[in-house]
Simulated scan of single mutants.
Amino acid sequence: MKIALASDHAGFRYKETIKKFLQQLGHQVVDFGTHSEDPVDYPDFVRPAALAVARGECERGIVLGGSGNGEAMVANKVRGIRCALCWNEESARLARQHNDANMLSLGQRLLPEVTALAIVRIFLETPFEGGRHIPRLQKMEPQE
């Protein structure tokens, strides 16, 4: 799977760990930055990652920050993105099963690394259930 990856400075360390983890699992990673712990503005990195997922250039995306909140908000402003802020394995499982989340947001300051990696694995392995959830997803689409 081709996965877009992005973070700000507060999520940089986990981004690098997750990048290695994904590569070990055989996934192709497109790293949109940031590339250090120097302070940056997360929209500069998260928006390009979300656009790549929305355009189909990447199948999924993972974004990280201190809490993951701002990153999820930025990603969800892009049409076609369903970015889930996850804090445990069950939240990741449900985000995929019920919401067909195509992006995952994680907060480095709020999760142990082992939990973050478990969430990533579940996010990648869990299929969307479809069925009764499809009409709900259609109702999420922006109304013009």
Rank of each mutant, 00 (worst) to 15 (best):
L5R: 14
V114N: 06
N69E: 13
L5M: 13
R93V: 10
S7F: 12
S105I: 09
K77S: 06
H9S: 14
P43Q: 05
A95G: 15
G66H: 00
L85D: 06
N99P: 07
A54P: 10
K20V: 15
I18K: 01
P39T: 13
V40M: 04
G131M: 07
F123L: 11
A52V: 00
V63R: 01
K20R: 13
S67Q: 07
H9P: 15
H27A: 03
P127M: 06
D31V: 02
A95E: 04
A49G: 12
G11A: 13
I122H: 10
P142D: 05
E144A: 02
R109N: 06
H35T: 13
F32V: 05
E59G: 14
L117V: 02
G65T: 14
T17P: 05
V46T: 14
P112A: 05
K19R: 15
N76Q: 08
C83D: 07
G80S: 07
A116R: 05
N76W: 05
E89H: 08
G33V: 00
W87F: 14
G33W: 09
P112F: 02
V120E: 02
A118H: 10
R60H: 12
D41A: 07
A84F: 03
N102P: 04
I3Y: 00
Q108L: 03
D100L: 03
E89A: 12
G68A: 06
I18P: 05
I119D: 10
P142C: 02
E90T: 15
H133N: 04
D31S: 03
A92R: 06
E16D: 15
C83N: 10
S67L: 02
L51P: 15
R93Y: 11
K20P: 04
L111Q: 08
A92I: 04
N102M: 04
I62H: 12
S36W: 05
E89C: 07
K77Q: 15
V63Y: 04
C58F: 07
T115E: 10
V46E: 13
V40Q: 08
G68Y: 08
M73C: 10
I122D: 10
R109Q: 08
D8F: 07
A10S: 15
L117N: 14
E125Y: 05
P39S: 12
E125F: 05
R109F: 03
E37V: 01
H98R: 00
V114M: 02
T115Q: 12
Y14Q: 14
